[in-house]
């Protein structure tokens, strides 16, 4: 009995050692490549992943690892050097300005409703009034007498930060407004609830939801570039000090014609070209 137990313990120990060993191997295996890590805004993440894929095809010696965490986490991570590049979808606060800001593209924030909703246009004031609780019924927007199921993002999210700055100005988002914790779940709620309204990154919009024009202006790349659509925020890469080595190579790629074209195809507005 005791011998059996001892064997089992020995086996367990062996498994642990092998496991730890494999971790070590993994580490040393990865270090043969030049790895850079990006972390931050979940709005920027999917596009960074796409850019990283293309970059790694052209630079097989480099590995680019993209993680989420949110804009604030991205800023933090860049500041204490846990990552080479932080990603933010909001502007930096004054105390964060020690980081170098590199805008890679611009993103429109679009107001979305259910595809079956007949409302097509809304003004920026109306959007603000929906979110500060003054407009609560679709009748006030020329549709049926039914409460508006408005959805916002959670406190701290970059998209919410940009929305508050661009639309709410100094006003609070009302406590009755529902909260979802990602662009995806806001879109999901709006896609399933005929009476819902929400805001998501322009790049996230697809056929499951309908975008509203703001004061007659549709959130399109052309309108954003010609400064007619105003709910726009920058997507930023953040580095502590000037980027070097692989980090610089990756950022140069993102800002190159090829990189910018990739972003354009994703529905974003390039910074150049």
């Amino acid at each position: 009995m005791n011998g059996k137990l001892a064997t089992r313990l020995a086996l367990l120990l062996l498994i642990v050692i092998v496991f730890l060993g494999s971790l070590g191997l993994h580490r040393s295996g990865a270090s043969r490549k030049d790895t850079i890590t990006l972390a931050g805004s979940t709005s920027v993440m999917p596009f960074s992943e796409k850019l990283a894929e293309y970059f790694m095809v052209g630079n097989p010696k480099c590995a680019v690892d993209v993680q989420g965490g949110g804009s604030s986490a991205g800023v933090q991570a860049a500041m204490n050097k846990t990552v080479q590049i932080g990603m933010s979808s909001r502007k930096l606060r004054d105390d964060e300005k020690i980081l170098k800001e590199i805008p890679i593209c611009y993103d429109g924030i679009s107001i979305i409703v259910h595809p079956g909703n007949p409302v097509r246009n809304i003004t920026e004031d109306q959007v603000r009034q929906i979110y500060n609780g003054e407009i609560r019924n679709w009748k006030q927007l020329g549709w049926i007498d039914r409460a508006i199921d408005a959805v916002t993002r959670e406190e701290g999210s970059g998209t919410r930060g940009a929305f508050e700055e661009l639309v709410m100005k100094k006003e609070y988002i009302d406590d009755r407004i529902m909260v979802q914790d990602s662009n995806g779940s806001v879109k999901e709620v709006v896609a399933t609830d005929p009476y819902a309204i929400g805001y998501v990154s322009l790049g996230m919009v697809d056929a499951k939801v309908k975008t509203l024009t703001i004061g007659g202006v549709a959130p399109t790349v052309t309108n954003i570039r010609q400064n007619r659509y105003h709910m726009v925020r920058p997507f930023l890469y953040l580095t502590l000090g000037d980027p070097q080595g692989t980090t610089k190579a990756f950022i140069d790629f993102v800002l190159s014609r090829d990189g910018q074209n990739i972003l354009r195809r994703e529905g974003l507005v390039p910074v150049r070209g």
């Binding site: 949110g70 604030s72 800023v75 933090q76 959670e154 406190e155 701290g156 970059g158 529902m178 914790d181």
Partner: peptide
Amino acid sequence: DPLRTLTSNIALELAYAAGDH
């Protein structure tokens, strides 16, 4: 009516929270 519980408050906002938040 929709509502928010204590647990969901933590999980919902933890990812983005920094400092006092």
